[in-house]
Nucleic acid binder design. Structure first.
Length: 444
DNA sequence: TCTGGGGTCCTAGGACCC
DNA sequence: TCTGGGGTCCTAGGACCC
């Protein structure tokens, strides 16, 4: 099936992608870092983002920091600073919004914009808009962006990825096939390793293709054939590769969640029941902080333990009433914990997933005169949140998390004293921690 | 890449009901 | 109650993305 479109832009969809965004934000914030090997992710012990200088010297995503230090002794490793990144993110959205209100805030470093119909109001062509947006982003934010313009999201995404960093790629409808012919199918947004292996196998058998299958070869198959072999998401991708418009932009701020989860790996792995439970308890607390920040309540949640062999064991718990207090979750998890935890097994991580999230106003009224106590708990939690806001995250924590929180101060590859000195040099102060062991007493 | 953390959507299959 | 057919809801797990 030939890909042919008479129009250059049946729709004009723009995709904007910040180049190594976190590292670039750090450089924009502190220009003295310009031209240096900058890596973020210090608090995780692995690289989250790295400047192109660091990339050129062999740093890759998720590389261990100890390894990076060996590779580049003068490397600058910084902790992630999400407040700053989201500030730059907001400025990125604002610049694109000068040209259209139809913006999808896809992630902290990416957005889509629908420019369709904006040539007249903006008094310029789509190509000019893309150029001007890129220029303003680069100039005003002090970092570079890669920009793609095409007829839908899948192709706009392919376009922005085409040339990096600081690329501007425009794929009008009549040129789609030229790009897809040079694009390996696994590079298409939404086609991962499993599906590309499957496509490889199918097309190898049906068409006798050898070597890497291109996006064009997949796109050229008949829709009926695709329908026969693939699930809905891939039928949709197939249509977009052929220039169709399937995925509308999700306009506006992303605010609601279907689920909230917190997982943390701890080293070394442990079989100590109380310690593992404390890790889980800490995750539950953190998940609930996020829950409350968004004024949400949960009616269903699942906890799990991950063994040293990367096996998962977990349990789901359903509630009759939506809650947001960690103690209540911790209490019901404690009841079921021994059904999941096996003595002698080494665990490396714990996690909690909160589901069926509701907003406060949707919550059903409390009919059983429990409201007094619930209000008191709410008041305590509000106080906890404001203490955290003042003194830093997790200043206050539940007694059940003590073993986990306590172990944090022994972490790190440097001695405690050198770490403290380094913190003072960076102008940081050690957080004060206040345990509240009695917050967990709830009987219902 | 011996493997960090936070999300979303889709599908198949079972339970349950009429 | 042998049987049939259809609809809905829920759950587990897979796949993918940043």
């Amino acid at each position: 099936m030939p890909i042919l479109s008479l129009h250059s832009f049946s729709r004009a969809i723009l995709h904007v992608d910040g180049d190594c965004f976190f590292a670039s934000c750090e450089v924009a914030k502190n220009p003295a870092l310009k031209g240096k090997c900058v890596v973020t992710g210090k608090e995780r012990g692995i690289a989250s983002s790295m400047s192109y200088e660091a990339k050129a010297r062999g740093v890759t995503r998720a590389m261990r920091l100890s390894e990076i230090r060996k590779l580049i002794p003068e490397v600058i490793i910084l902790p992630s600073d999400y407040e700053t990144y989201s500030l730059y993110s907001q400025r990125m959205y604002a610049i694109v919004r000068r040209y259209t209100e139809a913006i999808e805030e896809y992630s902290i470093d990416e957005c889509f914009a629908d420019l369709t119909g904006m040539r007249r109001p903006n008094k310029m062509s789509y190509e000019q808009m893309a150029m001007k947006i890129k220029h303003e982003l680069d100039m005003e934010l002090g970092m570079t962006f890669s920009v793609g313009l095409s007829v839908n999201k899948v192709l706009a995404k392919a376009a922005s990825k085409w040339r990096k960093p600081s690329g501007l790629t425009i794929i009008p409808g009549y040129n789609i096939h030229l790009y897809l012919a040079k694009l390996p199918v696994e590079k298409v947004w939404g086609i991962g390793s499993q599906t590309s292996a499957y496509i490889q196998k199918l097309l190898g058998e049906a068409r006798g293709y050898s070597g890497a299958v291109t996006a064009l070869q997949f796109a050229s198959e008949q829709p009926e054939w695709v329908k026969l072999h693939f699930s809905k998401p891939f039928q949709e991708i197939h249509r977009e590769l052929n220039g169709g418009f399937v995925y509308p932009l999700v306009i506006g701020e992303k605010n609601d969640y279907a689920s909230i989860s917190k997982t943390r790996t701890f080293t070394p792995p442990s079989s100590d029941r109380e310690y593992v439970f404390a890790q889980l308890s800490k995750n539950i607390e953190n998940a609930c902080i996020k829950l409350r920040r968004h004024s949400l309540f949960t009616k269903r949640f699942a906890f799990f333990l991950k063994t040293q062999e990367f096996r998962y064991a977990g349990l789901e718990i359903k509630l009759s009433q939506a809650i947001s207090a960690p103690q209540e979750i911790i209490r019901s998890v404690r009841e079921k914990f021994s059904q999941v935890h096996r003595p002698g097994v080494l665990y490396r991580a714990t996690g909690i997933v909160l589901m069926d999230l509701d907003h406060e106003d949707v919550r059903t009224a409390d009919l059983f005169g429990d409201s007094n106590r619930i209000e008191k708990v709410q008041a305590v939690l509000q106080a906890v949140d404001s203490i955290d806001a003042k003194f830093g995250k997790h200043t206050v924590f539940l007694g059940s998390s003590w073993k986990a929180v306590n172990s944090q101060s022994h972490r790190g590859d440097r001695g405690e004293e050198t770490e403290r000195r380094a913190q003072l040099l960076r102008g940081e102060t050690k957080r004060q921690r206040i345990g509240l062991p009695f917050l967990g007493k709830i009987d219902r």
